[in-house]
Design a protein around this nucleic acid. Structure first.
Lengths: 229, 229
DNA sequence: CTTGTAAATTAGTCTAGACTAATTTAGTAT
DNA sequence: ATACTAAATTAGTCTAGACTAATTTACAAG
């Protein structure tokens, strides 16, 4: 009797690890380092090693030759379901009960592990099958389909919204080098302040400095909206 | 540093034990036997012994000289808060989301341990501070005050409502013996079907049989309404 | 190539909370 | 009083999931 664990067959702890791996995996698909998981979940490295072993046995994740973590289809399915729970709950708490964003996030972080499939569906229909949570993050559908998160260049990004750089796309190595040096590398969290008119520069806030970059440079920088998470 | 545990400082398991003790304690205040708790929570006797020790250390319950369990004020406070969570959740799931009673009960049985104080309050106000859950059970208030549940004799009880026998009160031991023999003992769940006129008998359903008892006998049987729990 | 550091692993400990099996306590019936 | 039974306890085991301390692997820099 093989057992194919679904979301409710795995513990909250396992759900957290899977969700974490999913969310740390950037779109380039390189897999996640264990130390990242440890930091994100605020546990120690041995705890991660230990759990990863179990997750491999459960066929919920695999490891690259370099030891990085990649979810299996099944693991990703569970991660998506947990995220679906989270975002539905957040939306519900904010929209229906008027809870504040910060609190709704914390509450959802817990409840996401405990609501039944049926409650999930009831919340979903009560909200008329929302596509996005209050932060604008897409809500995975029940079948695991994720409404496409539009990764776009900085030029198309909205102002004053938290962004994360997901990719630098350019033929020109000096351009990439330049971006690296100015700390505009994948993973960096930035905010677009404004785009000056007449083909002017973009004001980009990174950390507590504001930097100005040309439109040509901005066209290489692909970003995602990343409020909240 | 003494620690006075509140609901969210104790584990779900502890919450379950406290709630269970509270609900098994009949109004006569005799305390609960450990074997009852074991059955109700579907755990073994040693598990109960073990947990009871911990609860005593936490000053959440005491034991009578006969070894029966009695919640302390603090323990009862936690039990009441868990029950408040349960009944608010049930009400919310049924009234706001249209969930069925049975399912709402199961869902609440889990979520009662995980909602925050703040969410509890939001649900409470969303429902306009309801006094009773869908089963008619009173919802404890935040300060722990429980709208009084009226224990009365069978003669005063409503028909066709699930009841639980909480006490047999009589001077006559043969009467008590008689009741025991007919399985009308404290804890038994019964329903009153009808009271025949002209000082006639009461039709009482117990299990799947219907039994007829005189008014004199009925006057000894104290019952509570106990839909659901 | 060696060396220094970051990442990962191993080995062992701890806690909560369940379990079984065996034993003891207590209360009832003869 | 004795014996039977029900309730409780003791002792020991198990699992999940964390931890520390010590060690090993792996990779980048001189």
């Amino acid at each position: 009797m093989e057992k194919l664990p679904a979301t409710h067959d795995v513990s909250p702890a396992i759900q957290d690890y899977l969700k974490c791996c999913y969310q740390l995996a950037d779109p380039t698909g390189q897999g996640v380092a264990m130390v990242q998981v440890a930091e994100a979940l605020r546990v120690t490295a041995p705890s991660v090693t230990n759990m990863v072993k179990r997750l491999e046995d459960l066929r919920l994740l695999r490891r690259t030759p370099h030891g990085r973590l990649i979810l299996t289809v099944r693991g990703e399915g569970i991660a998506l379901e947990v995220i679906r729970h989270h975002r539905l709950l957040e939306t519900f708490l904010v929209d229906t009960l008027g809870m504040g964003w910060g609190e709704a996030h914390k509450e959802a972080e817990i409840l996401e592990h405990y609501i039944s499939e049926h409650l999930e569906q009831l919340i979903d229909s009560h909200l008329a099958n929302p596509r996005r949570d209050p932060h604008g993050e897409p809500i995975p559908r029940r079948d695991g389909l994720l409404p496409h998160r539009t990764s776009a260049t900085l030029l198309e990004a909205p102002c004053n919204t938290p962004l994360r750089i997901v990719q630098l796309r350019s033929q020109d190595p000096t351009m990439l080098r330049y971006l690296e040096e100015t700390r505009l590398h994948p993973g960096a969290r930035i905010t677009l302040r404004e785009i000056a008119p007449f083909n002017g520069a973009l004001a980009v806030r990174i950390g507590r400095e504001t930097r100005h970059i040309s439109r040509d440079v901005a066209a290489c920088i692909f970003v995602l909206q990343t409020t909240g998470k």
